[in-house]
Design a protein around this nucleic acid. Structure first.
Lengths: 203, 203
DNA sequence: GTCTATATATAGATAGAC
DNA sequence: GTCTATCTATATATAGAC
């Protein structure tokens, strides 16, 4: 809520969050020190503590900001014509998965981060599962045989795993797995060609 | 090679490696400082630098030790009667995946770790893929339709993803995905019941 | 092989001026 | 809202005694 600013708001807070995200992505969370993020945001170190009581608070805000942006994009994208493939490509974004690994590691030993990451992960799963449910149902897929939550997890996690490995230079088997997933997505997409709406006038 | 020890070998080096692994697992790599690991191993901080020139060298040794032990177990386990399920359960070990996340994060911004992790990951993939190849072939599965490397990655990565999530308290959809994977493994295992050896006398 | 002691750097965080 | 200056803790790493 940037409604009642007393002194001029030069966006330092926002720049700090963005700078922290970038440093975490490129060099890991351990490199995102108060001095480093302040320098990257063009402010002095002490200002970090004006906006964020502790560094963990800053990390949580980075996670929240990224989560909100991500959920926003997700909700929009997953309503398109091919939610399954959108789910796949969205989780193949190297920028996202890089930060995600950092937060995963952070969450393993920081309670506040863990709590936040858990909440975010569950919101993501709900949205993705809803989209997959609609997609599978529209294609006449048996939802008992292919539980939407399992399908959405499989697609998302596989895409992320490939990204995680790519980040450390591992590419062995990636082409084969990608091709395999493509084929499975094709099979699901073609599950029920007969009940495809012929002409509803809405395109 | 513990063959020619001048002074008494009290196993400090080994204890340092184990202590480091434990701290990394429980509190993350950032907590594995020279003082912390020394204390946990029952030695003084300076001794860390007698055995390991830098902390990164220690981390690499932790990775190597874990990798060797893991590959050893893997080679033994994957020759059993049900390699696909063994692959699944081996990658469901919370102790392994916890450390793995730490090294993944470390590898994102430490060249030596990245190189080591990549080498390890590729050795693991080769072993797992070989085992899956044998298993699928024995069951008469079409290897073009189910490329062994893709199948092995899918099984291993899915198991790990579930562990990674469990570690941060996320369990949403896990039961469904586990059940789904079980069913797929069943289908693969039952692919060719006709050529099942009837009686070899080994029961 | 293990120790004490220390050099040097940098971390998170606070006090108080402007 | 942003700064300078500083406190305190702790990091990696080295020198040299035993």
């Amino acid at each position: 809520m940037p409604s009642k600013a007393k002194a001029a708001d030069t966006g330092a807070r926002q720049r700090l969050i963005e700078a922290t995200a970038q440093i975490m992505r490129e060099e890991g969370y351990a490199a995102a020190t108060s001095r480093r993020v302040a320098a990257a945001a063009g402010v002095k170190q002490a200002l970090v503590y004006y906006y964020f009581p502790t560094m963990d608070d800053l990390y949580v805000e980075v996670l929240r900001a990224g989560a909100e942006a991500s959920l926003q994009r997700m909700r929009a994208a997953l309503t398109d014509s091919d939610p399954l493939r959108t789910l796949w490509s969205m989780n193949s974004d190297l920028r996202l998965t890089g930060l995600n690994t950092e937060f995963m590691a952070l969450a393993n030993h920081r309670k506040v981060i863990r709590k936040e990451l858990k909440a975010y992960a569950e919101r993501v799963r709900d949205i993705e599962t809803a989209a997959v449910t609609v997609a599978l149902r529209a294609r006449g897929v048996d939802l008992d045989e292919y539980p939407p939550v399992a399908v959405s997890m499989l697609i998302a996690q596989t895409a992320r795993s490939l990204c995680n490995e790519s980040a450390v230079g591992v590419h062995l088997g990636h082409d084969e797995l990608r091709a395999f997933m493509e084929r499975q997505l094709d099979l699901l997409a073609a599950a029920l060609p007969t009940t495809k709406p012929a002409a509803t006038g809405q395109g």
